[in-house]
Design a protein around this nucleic acid. Structure first.
Lengths: 206, 206, 206, 206
DNA sequence: TATGAATGAGTTTTCATTCAT
DNA sequence: AATGAATGAAAACTCATTCAT
C-alpha cells in the first residue's frame, strides 16, 4: 500500500542515523558537548536541524548515542581475546600490554574523546554507569588472570583486584599524558617497560 | 570620605577575590564550566554579578584562576619532599607511593575537579600548557629517582622517562576509577600493592 | 488493478474522514488547538501525517470541521421539539428547562469543548459566525415563545429578546461553572429552581 | 554602598513589571496565549526579551500574572458593597443587577479576556482554582442574600445555592453572547428585565 | 567601587507542511 | 492515495557581559 516498503524506510533511517552519529561524534569530541551546536551537526551532516530531532529526541540523547557507539569500540573484546591466545598468565599479561599499547597507537583519533566522556561522569548517569561497568568488567578479566597466576605460582601473592585496577589505570593515565602532549608518550616503549617492571619488578636484587 | 588606607583597600580586594575564587571553584567543579553561571557564583559569593567583573575580566579567566589555584595544591611539592626525606631510590619510590595514596584519601573533595580540568586540555591553551608542565615536572622528578636507582644498581635498566610516565599514569588512572565508583578503589591497598609490584615485580621466580 | 468501484472508494474516504475527525475532536478538546499536534491526531487515528492532509487542507480546517460537527449536535433541534410537544408557552418554557438540564447531564463529555470553541470566537471568523447564528436562532425561538406567552396573557410584558438572551445565558453560564467545578453544579436542581423562579418569580408577595 | 538604593531598585522593578504586565495583557487577550509571542510583548513594551525573563520566569507565569491582575478587578468587591448599600434582600438583588449590568457596560475592554481565561481552565491549575474560588465566593454572597430573603419571607423557598449559581450564570452567559455579537446584547435592558423576572416572575397570574 | 537591571545574540526545540516514492 | 522522512521557520529561553547610577 505504501510505495516505499517499511523495510526501505528502515534502511533509510539506519543510514541517516549513522550519518548523523558519525558527524556528531566528530563535533562533540572536537568542541565538547556544550560548545557543539546541534546546528553545527546538522550542517556538517548535510541535513536540517529538524532532521536531527527526527532521529534523536534531544541533544543529550544524541551525545549519549555517540558515547554508546564509542563505548562499543573499547577494549574488552580485545582483553578477552588475549586471555585465549596465550597459554600462561605471564604470557597473557605480556600479550595484553602489547595489544593495548599497539591499539593506542592506532586509535589516536578516538583518544581525545576520553576526556570529553570522562568529564560527563559526574553529570550523566548513563555515562557514569557505562564507565563503572567498563571498569568492573576489565578489572574482573585482569583479576582472573592474576589470580590464576598466583594459583599457578607464577605470580607473587597480591590483591588481584587492586593489581587489576593498577594495570588499567596505567593505560588511562597514559592516555591523559598523551592527550596533554602526544610527543611525550611513546606507546611503543610502554609495553616493554611495563612488561618488564610488572612481571619482574624494578628491583635488581633478586 | 573614607578613612581606609590604600593598604586596607588592597587587603579588602584580596579577600574578596579569594572569596569569589573559592565559591567559583565549588560551582565550576560541581556543575562544570558551561553549566556554571556567573550569576550563580555571584549569588553564592554574596556579591553582585558586576562585582565579579571587577575582579576577573571574564568567565574564562575566572575559570583559569580557579584552575591555577587548584594546580598549586597539586603533588609536585610533595614529590620533592619525598626525594629529600628518603635515603635510597628504593625508599624514595616506596615513600612516594605511600604519600600519594594517603594524599588521595584526604583530597577526596578535589578529585572530582580532575575530569573537569582534563576536559579543557583540548580547548584551553593555558590549561594544556599547565598539564604539560605538570606532567613534565613530575616525570622529570621521578625519572631522576629512577635513573639514580639504576646508577646505584638498585633498579634494573629501564627507560627512566617511560617508567616515570607509567608511575604517574597509575595515579591519574586510579583517580578516574575512583571518580567512576569510589567504593571500588581502596587507596589504602594501592601503596602496598604498587610498592610490592613495582619494586619486586609480580613474578615469583626470582 | 483494484476491483473497488468508485462508490466503494467514496465510502472508504468518508469512513476515513470520520475516523480522523473523531480522533481530532478528542485531541483538540483535550489539549486545545495549539497544543494539539497534527502528528498526534495522525498517530491516534492510525494514519500517517500525510494522510491527514489528503482529507483536510490544513490544521485550521481540520479544527473547523471538528467545530462544525460539534455544532450540529447542539440544542436547537431540541428546542424546536419542545415548542411542538407542549401546549402553552408556560409549559413550553418548563419543558425546555427540563430538557436542557437533562441534556447537560448526559452530554458531560462534550461540555469541555465549549471553552475551547468559545476562545476561538475572537480569532476565527467561521466560528464567530457559527456562534452568532446559533445564539440568534436560539434567541429567536425563545423570543417567539415568550412573545406568544405575553400575547396570551400568560406572561408579563417583558422585552422578549432580552428575556430570551437571559434564558440562554443561564445555561452557558452554568456550563462554565460546571467546567470549573463539576461537583458544584447540580443539573437536576437547576430545572426546578429555574422554572419556579422564571415563571413565578422569587417574590413571595403575590 | 550602592549608588542606587535598594528602594530605588525596588521602585524601578515595580514600574517595569507593571509596564510589561499591561502590554502582556493586551497582547494575550488580543491574540490568545499561544499566538502571542514573548517577543511581541517585549517589543511593544519597549524592552528586550531578556528583560521579560528578568521579571517573569517564563511565558506561562507571565500569563498567570496577567490573569491574576485581571482577577483582582472582578466583581466580588462590588457585590459586597451592594450588600451593604441596600436595606432589604429584594433591594439588594435589584441593586446588584443594576450594578453588574452597568459594570459590564463600562468594562467592555476586559470582557474579551473572559474567553481566553476560560479556555485555560482545563489546562492550568492556578486558573482553575482561581475560577473555582471566584464562583464559590460569589455563590456564597448571593446565597446569603437569598437565604436572608427567604427567612424574612421576602422570597419564596428555593435552594439558595442553586439560585445563586443561576444568577451568576446569567451574567457569564451574557458576556459570551456579547463577545459573539456585541450589538445583540443590550446591557441597559438586562438589569430591568432581570429584576422584573427574577423578583416577580414571568407569570402574570398572581 | 558596587550594584543589578538590561541587553541581545545565540541555542535548543517544535511542528505544520511538503514531497519523493 | 498513502507514507513518513525531511524541512525550515518560528518560538521560548539562557546568560555572559555592559553600563547607568
Amino acid at each position: 500500500m505504501s510505495p516505499r516498503t517499511p523495510a526501505q524506510f528502515e534502511k533509510l533511517r539506519t543510514r541517516r542515523r549513522e550519518q548523523i552519529l558519525k558527524v556528531a561524534a566528530e563535533i562533540f569530541i572536537q568542541k565538547g558537548y556544550h560548545a557543539a551546536n546541534v546546528s553545527d551537526v546538522a550542517q556538517k551532516a548535510g541535513v536540517s536541524q529538524g532532521t536531527i530531532y527526527h532521529y534523536f529526541p534531544d541533544k543529550e540523547n544524541l551525545f549519549l548515542a555517540v558515547y554508546e557507539s564509542w563505548e562499543i569500540r573499547n577494549l574488552q573484546s580485545e582483553l578477552r581475546d588475549a586471555l585465549e591466545n596465550a597459554a600462561t598468565p605471564t604470557e597473557q599479561l605480556g600479550l595484553l600490554a602489547q595489544m593495548v599499547a599497539k591499539r593506542m597507537e592506532q586509535a589516536k583519533d578516538i583518544l581525545p574523546a576520553y576526556t570529553e566522556f570522562w568529564s560527563h561522569i559526574h553529570r550523566n548517569k548513563a555515562i557514569k554507569i557505562g564507565f563503572q561497568n567498563m571498569f568492573k568488567d576489565m578489572r574482573g578479566i585482569l583479576a582472573r588472570i592474576i589470580r590464576n597466576g598466583i594459583d599457578k605460582n607464577e605470580f607473587v601473592n597480591t590483591e588481584p583486584m587492586t593489581m587489576a585496577a593498577i594495570l588499567i589505570a596505567v593505560f588511562d593515565g597514559l592516555i591523559l599524558q598523551w592527550i596533554a602532549d602526544p610527543k611525550q608518550v611513546k606507546w611503543e616503549n610502554i609495553a616493554d617497560t611495563l612488561t618488564q617492571v610488572i612481571l619482574t619488578g624494578l628491583s635488581a636484587n633478586k
